[in-house]
Simulated scan of single mutants.
Amino acid sequence: MTVAANAVTLPLGGYRPKHFLLSVVDRVATITLNRPERKNPLTFDSYAELVDLFRAAAKDDSVKAFVVTGAGGNFSSGGDVHEIIGPLVERDMPGLLAFTRMTGELVKAMRACPQPIVAAIDGVCAGAGAIMAMASDLRLGTARTKIAFLFNRVGLAGCDMGACAMLPRIVGQGRAAELLYLGRTLPGEEALAWGFLNRLVEPDAVLAAAQDLAREIAGGPTFAHAMTKRMLEMEWAMSVEAAVEAEAVAQAVCMQTKDFARAYQAFAAKRQPVFGGD
């Protein structure tokens, strides 16, 4: 994996990335892909820096949830044609494999990150941008959202960055096959009907709605949310019997947290619990 030169060493609230915008407010970190004149494409450097950020998030207790969005009315057009696709044509097989493994590290980092990730998707959401949306935990979109897994359009397979594993889990096998074989655009309303989007919001409100949702998550039991995310990931590879047992262990661990006791005490006192994340 290529590591960004300015790998994250500070708490996320004090970190200033070079290749996207980052703000932390009310325990929610908002990542904004910020090349609006090109519809926010990804580059070698932005891939690496995003990986570093999500890896660092596992050690940052001050951030409880993420929002990922794009500037200028689009989410992301995917890998930059000139800065990524062009150079790849000149690489040998080891170099190509190094690149595809590096892009896959972004999905791995997003899924391993304990904080839930909410994607705020407006406009174009294509290629690796669609993969970032897919790798998020929740997705809010607009009627003008255009999601497209475009890999076949450039002569590549649809099996990119985990799409063949994750997309069928979200929309179903047949629908995933349609999107990956055809590379067609999935508009916002259809994406909602298919279950790719959790809800539709007006374009000028989608980021605020995603941040509100992230703040609601951030106000919950942080350790338990991380456990839920981990089990959602693990249980796809388990039998039902193994999953039930794994959840028994996971829930017993959560019952040892102070948040579990806080919730009981608040219930007994007829008030809302205030979770501390421990």
Rank of each mutant, 00 (worst) to 15 (best):
A98D: 15
F99S: 12
F99H: 13
T100I: 10
T100R: 03
T100L: 11
R101Y: 13
M102V: 00
M102C: 09
E105S: 14
V107F: 02
V107D: 03
A109M: 06
A109I: 04
R111W: 07
A112Y: 10
C113Y: 07
C113V: 04
C113M: 06
P114K: 10
P114T: 06
Q115K: 10
P116V: 09
A119W: 01
A119T: 01
A120E: 02
A120G: 02
I121R: 04
I121S: 03
D122W: 01
G123V: 08
G123T: 05
V124G: 01
C125Q: 10
A126S: 14
A126D: 12
A128W: 04
A128S: 11
G129H: 05
I131D: 13
I131V: 15
M132Y: 02
A133H: 04
A133G: 14
D137V: 05
D137S: 12
L138F: 15
R139I: 02
L140H: 03
L140Y: 09
A143W: 00
A143Q: 11
A143L: 11
A143R: 12
T145R: 01
K146M: 12
K146G: 04
I147H: 05
I147Y: 07
F149L: 01
L150M: 14
L150G: 08
F151T: 09
F151G: 00
F151S: 11
F151P: 00
F151L: 11
N152L: 00
V154F: 15
V154E: 13
L156C: 07
L156E: 15
L156A: 15
L156R: 13
A157Y: 08
G158D: 09
G158R: 04
G158C: 07
G158F: 07
C159A: 15
C159M: 08
D160T: 10
M161F: 08
M161T: 07
M161S: 10
M161E: 14
C164Y: 11
C164F: 10
C164D: 13
C164R: 06
A165W: 01
A165N: 08
M166E: 14
M166Q: 13
M166W: 11
L167R: 05
P168Q: 11
P168E: 09
R169I: 01
R169Q: 14
R169E: 15
R169F: 00
R169K: 12
V171F: 03
V171Q: 06
V171A: 08
G172M: 02
Q173L: 09
G174I: 00
G174E: 14
A176K: 05
A176H: 06
A177C: 04
E178G: 06
E178Q: 13
L179M: 15
L179D: 04
L179V: 05
L179E: 03
L180H: 09
Y181F: 14
L182F: 08
G183I: 10
R184D: 15
R184M: 13
R184Q: 15
R184S: 15
T185K: 11
T185L: 10
T185G: 09
L186Y: 07
P187M: 09
G188A: 06
E189D: 15
E189G: 10
E190S: 12
A191V: 04
A191N: 05
A191T: 02
L192M: 13
